[in-house]
Amino acid sequence: MTIAFFAESNAGTRTLPRSLATKAGGFVFVSGQVARDENGDLIVGEIDAQTRQTMMNVAHALALAGCTLEDVVKTTVWLDDARDFDDFNRVYSEFFPGNKPARSTTQAKNMVGTKVEIEAIAYKP
């Protein structure tokens, strides 16, 4: 089995001791993404804006490994505030209009103070 590691490229996360994504065989594991823009700055704003940016970051990490959101089979989501669940789901569903991946969602305090963090597992043989 071939394993490939895709390095962090975002200025805000480049120094973290992790890979942005790791491809192992047909699986791609995307590290937890938060609402950072391309300059590494955290997006300020409500759950809608943060979810949208976070999902764009997940899509970017997947693209590095030759995948798209259509290849995602599982996501894990951490929300800072459970009251954001409905608004989060509204935006999240825009990124998965067809088949929906399996998902776990829990409430937890994020290490960098964002409202949402998302990690993903994709499969593309």
Rank of each mutant, 00 (worst) to 15 (best):
Q53K: 12
T51N: 05
L64C: 11
R52Q: 13
G45C: 03
L69A: 10
A65K: 07
D71I: 08
R52L: 09
T75G: 01
D80L: 13
D41Y: 02
V73N: 02
I47D: 06
A49H: 03
T76H: 10
V72N: 08
L62I: 08
D71Q: 10
I43V: 15
R36Q: 11
Q53S: 07
D41M: 05
L42P: 00
A61N: 02
L79W: 01
A65E: 07
N57W: 00
L79Q: 01
D71C: 08
V44I: 11
C67S: 14
V72D: 09
V58K: 03
C67Y: 10
L62C: 09
D48E: 15
D48I: 12
V58R: 03
R52P: 01
G40T: 00
V44G: 14
W78G: 09
T51C: 12
T75V: 15
V58N: 05
N57E: 12
L42I: 10
A61Y: 03
L64V: 01
K74Y: 15
L69S: 08
E46Y: 11
E46G: 15
W78E: 12
E70W: 02
M55D: 08
E46N: 15
E70F: 10
A49N: 05
D41L: 05
E38G: 08
V73Q: 06
E70L: 10
D80F: 11
L69V: 09
L69G: 07
I43T: 07
V44E: 15
